[in-house]
């Protein structure tokens, strides 16, 4: 009797935590997801009371849409660029701030984390000023070394302007992953490094054979997280910095979704693009999981 009651109490206690969370999850994640999937089968302006069912037409249109192909290409360019850039720099900083016994590590840790505190909008505007051809920092800096004033229009190249969006995106992402990796590195027992020291292993060998295998899980999570946030979140930086231009050359799926759904009154098409983002994210996650698979190393 008592056991049954205790079990009930326990279940109620658990439910008290799970049910509200689950309800929130359903209302704010599951419902919009299903709604978006549903809308992607309709021709709908986003303002009308009527929706016309068009089946898979929106998805067929996506494959015929050259801008959509540019957008997917740009998205994956940013994914690869950000993964390489952020992981390389974040790992370097994390190792430098933990293993190299520098002075003022706390200070540098805070400095490197600052871009993460800024909203993506602020980052975009800030870098717009850096790139500004007339009053920008970059041209001003370069002009110090040249006889005539440098007037490069950093965000106005005929093509490949997407390259210019990589530095701000990487810069804004480093801090968070650096902290994540610092946490992972500090949890590695010092005895391992001591032993390595005694054996005569240098910093590089310690990094390669102790640090890297033991923080691999965190690196894997970081890579997948960078990929997902890029596919879902490049919208902000693109919209702020280039609005997808010049001539749609920096469009990403997110910004093109916004353009179609809210500016050109193709809400159904926008929802279909959203579905494509979801599917590509899922596929890429699985692919990365597979690529980064490695036997788990645990510190016993």
């Amino acid at each position: 009797m008592n056991i049954g009651k205790a079990k009930l109490q326990r279940n109620l206690f658990i439910a008290a935590f799970i049910i509200p969370t689950f309800l929130f999850f359903c209302v704010f994640t599951i419902y919009p997801l299903i709604q978006a999937l549903y809308n992607s089968f309709f021709d709908w302006s986003g303002m009308s009371q009527h929706k016309d069912y068009v089946g898979l037409q929106n998805f067929k249109d996506i494959f015929d849409d050259p801008i959509m192909l540019t957008a997917i290409g740009n998205d994956y360019f940013l994914v690869i660029g950000k993964i390489i850039g952020i992981m390389a720099i974040a790992t370097f900083f994390a190792v430098a701030l933990t293993r190299l016994r520098l002075k003022g590590t706390a200070f540098f840790r805070s400095i490197f984390f600052i871009p993460n505190v800024l909203s993506a909008v602020v980052v975009g505007i800030l870098w717009n000023f850096i790139y500004n051809p007339q009053i920008g920092f970059l041209n001003g800096f370069l002009s110090l070394f040249t006889s005539s004033k440098v007037e490069i229009n950093w965000l106005g190249f005929e093509s490949h302007t997407i390259w210019m969006l990589l530095p701000p995106a990487v810069w804004a992402g480093i801090g968070f992953y650096m902290i994540l990796l610092i946490a992972a590195i500090t949890s590695i027992p010092a005895s391992l490094y001591e032993a390595a020291d005694i054996e005569g292993a240098g910093q590089w060998h310690q990094f390669r054979h102790i640090t890297l295998p033991l923080i691999w899980e965190q690196m894997k999570i970081s890579v997948i997280n960078i990929m997902m946030t890029t596919l879902n979140g490049s919208f902000v930086i693109v919209t702020i910095m280039t609005a997808g231009g010049p001539d749609n050359s920096t469009q990403v799926m997110g910004s093109y979704l916004y353009q179609q759904a809210f500016k050109q009154a193709h809400f159904g098409y926008g929802a279909a693009i959203g579905t494509v983002i979801l599917i590509t994210s899922l596929i890429t996650t699985l692919l990365l999981q597979w690529l980064l698979r490695k036997e788990q190393v645990e510190v016993s």
Partner: peptide, 22 residues
Amino acid sequence: TFTVKKTAATAMAVAMSLAVLA
């Protein structure tokens, strides 16, 4: 009393989340 407290907590949690939703 323990049970009552817990049940009350459950009810409150649910009620609060609903209030926020509303």
